[in-house]
Design a protein around this nucleic acid. Structure first.
Length: 597
DNA sequence: AATTCCCGCCACGGG
DNA sequence: CCCGTGGCGGGAATT
């Protein structure tokens, strides 16, 4: 009561203020997205909104300790946010912003499920319930789910429902992400960007200098010179089929994909440290050709923070600091698994990738209209329609609410095989005509026929057929996507489920044309530095990679406990520790430097 | 002042 | 029109 009371004061105030300012700022071009029109009928002044606000403010207090259902014993979450002032009892801490952070929320969420789910009950997640139990707006849950989904820790099972996979697929996912990341030469790109940033800084006293959008794009980024058609791609997994109905609803790109890319960056970079600005730069350049940056950049960074927060609560990354000549810069270090046991899986994966090269070429020849050439791989209108139709069907199925499940699903389900068959046939024909018999055989020969997307926006559908996908669902599996230049890759399955695909962008394979001539590795070299917990500086990161063998005997206990409990660090970092990295220019060796603080 | 990043408006696509 | 989703960016809290 006390706490809520204390907060009530600030709340009204906050509301008032924002409402006052809103109108003013809103009119500018800064107004929220939307299409041509703008609206300012917001009226945040309504008593309702205030009430809402108060409720939300008070609620945390109420719900606070009763959501302690499972909560693991390591009581890792208690501590943080103890912004206490000595005997902090009644000296209320207003609901600090931190207590509402995504990271903490995610933590609470994770606490409800075991790291390694037992193919039993429980694995069903209902967003409504979660939102209610954690008492947060739905919106926030989506954020979490999206990044969890990107790691395949959950997968959408139906509208408003997800399946919990926990970390059971994590290693596999990471292994793949790493592969893909390497393919994209993220390592190099980062290196380049880091340099560029460094250089820019060197003589960047010219301040603004009209940072005209052109800002000589990094060579690496637009490498796809021809058509900057950088597209997004989402890496999927075997068990985790393409459930995510919306994975390709056009408008929903970002988070999932961004999250995967972000992770890739870590898995690929040498010191496994990534700073947000570098990440943002790369992620931006990729999605679309150069575009009106600056704002884009800021937005991107905001998202990265969101992602980073949940990644942090997953204990996959930690916040650290990179110290360049210009001062310290925050960054994140990967502290999750680095080496993945599934050698087998990876090996195979690699193989496929190798053979993929050929596919890549074929695909390119087939589907991307050569710069000069007019000839565009025109496929039968029928084919397109068919694909579209199938895609729609799939959507229907996927978006079907859990309750009325089958009704609609049934019908579409039944004729789905037909369509697939037709499609398969068409594909077959097309492929037979276009592909060299040899090339086709080089790719997971027997089973798959693939069809790549068209250039027409909105119609693209990458179809991926696998006869052997003896999925309960049906004889055929397909994966429609909206990304144009994607190439589905067939991956031999590890004993269990059907094959899975990875979408890749042809352009990324291209030898990096403009890549600078191997500059001296000048960039971030570093060394860690203390952390709040007073861990010895020596026991650095290297050591920790160890654990995480998927089957980790770790513990039966859900959750990961381990260390934690940073004994009430003096004020500074609330929940996580921070290490400091020192950047040494031109250094090839890892310099060992101590940086106070 | 710079970083973080919460909040929630509002667009979208399906029904 | 309603609903589930989830971009997106203002601007407040923290550092």
């Amino acid at each position: 009561l006390i706490s809520s009371h204390g907060f009530e004061f600030s709340t009204p105030f906050k509301v008032e203020q924002s409402s006052v300012e809103k109108p003013a700022t809103t009119m500018g071009p800064l107004a929220t997205p939307k299409k041509g029109r703008e609206v300012r009928s917001v009226d945040p002044w309504t008593p309702t909104s205030n009430l809402k606000m108060l409720i939300s403010a008070a609620s945390p207090d109420i719900r606070n300790r009763e959501k302690e259902l499972c909560m693991d014993h390591d009581g890792r979450e208690a501590l943080d946010s103890a912004r206490d002032t000595e005997n902090g009892e009644e000296s209320e801490k207003m609901i600090s912003r931190k207590e509402k952070s995504l990271g903490l929320l995610c933590h609470k969420f994770l606490a409800r499920y075991p790291d390694y789910p037992n193919p039993e009950l429980n694995n069903d997640i209902c967003l409504d319930d979660v939102a209610t139990e954690l008492s947060v707006e739905r919106r926030r849950i989506y954020d979490i789910m999206n990044v969890l989904e990107s790691l395949h820790m959950v997968s959408r099972s139906a509208k408003n429902r997800y399946w919990w996979h926990g970390r059971s697929k994590l290693a596999q996912t990471l292994a793949i992400l790493k592969q893909v990341g390497e393919e994209h030469r993220y390592g190099q790109q980062m290196q380049q960007i880091r340099q560029r940033i460094l250089l820019d800084r060197e003589f960047d006293f010219d301040g603004d200098e009209k940072e005209n959008e052109s800002e000589e794009v990094a060579p690496a980024e637009l490498e796809s010179g021809e058509h900057g058609q950088r597209e997004l791609f989402f890496v999927e997994l075997p068990g985790v089929e393409f459930k995510a109905a919306s994975v390709n609803s056009r408008k929903d790109k970002s988070l999932r994909v961004m999250s995967q890319k972000f992770v890739m960056l870590f898995l690929v970079s040498s010191p496994r440290v990534v700073s947000l600005d570098v990440a943002a730069k790369i992620l931006i350049g990729e999605d679309q050709g150069a575009d009106q940056d600056k704002n884009k950049f800021k937005t991107k960074v905001r998202r990265l923070y969101d992602i980073a927060n949940v990644l942090r609560s997953l204990k996959l990354i930690e916040k650290v600091h990179v110290t360049e000549e210009r001062g310290r810069k925050p960054a994140f270090e990967w502290v999750g698994p680095v080496e993945f046991p599934q050698v087998k899986g990876i090996a195979r994966y690699t193989n496929v990738l190798e053979s993929r090269a050929s596919v890549d070429n074929c695909a390119k020849k087939l589907f991307s209209s050569p710069p000069g050439g007019k000839r565009r791989f025109t496929r039968h209108q029928s084919l397109i329609k068919l694909a579209k139709s199938i895609q729609d069907d799939r959507r229907k199925i996927n978006s079907a609410p859990s309750s009325p499940v089958k009704s609609a699903a049934d019908s579409s389900n039944t004729d789905l095989p037909n369509k697939m068959a037709q499609l398969a046939a068409i594909c077959k024909i097309q492929l037979d005509q276009e592909f060299e018999p040899t090339s086709s055989s080089s790719v997971e020969p027997p089973r798959a026929a693939l069809l790549t997307p068209t250039q027409e926006p909105g119609v693209n559908a990458t179809v991926y057929l696998t006869p052997l996908a003896a999925k309960p669902a049906g004889p055929l599996a397909y994966i429609p996507t909206q990304c144009s230049p994607l190439i589905p890759v067939l991956l031999p399955q590890q004993r269990c489920s059907g094959p899975y695909a990875v979408y890749l962008q042809p352009s990324s394979l291209r030898p990096n044309p403009l890549a600078r001539p191997q500059p001296t590795s000048l960039a971030v070299r570093s060394m860690t530095f203390e952390d709040r917990t007073g861990q010895s500086p020596t026991g650095q990161s290297a050591a920790r990679a160890s654990d995480v063998s998927p089957l980790a005997l770790k513990r039966l206990r859900p959750d990961s406990a381990s260390e934690s409990s940073p004994s009430k660090a003096k004020r500074t970092d609330p929940n996580f520790k921070v290490k400091t990295y020192v950047d040494v220019k031109h250094s090839n060796s890892l310099g060992f430097i101590t940086a106070g603080n």
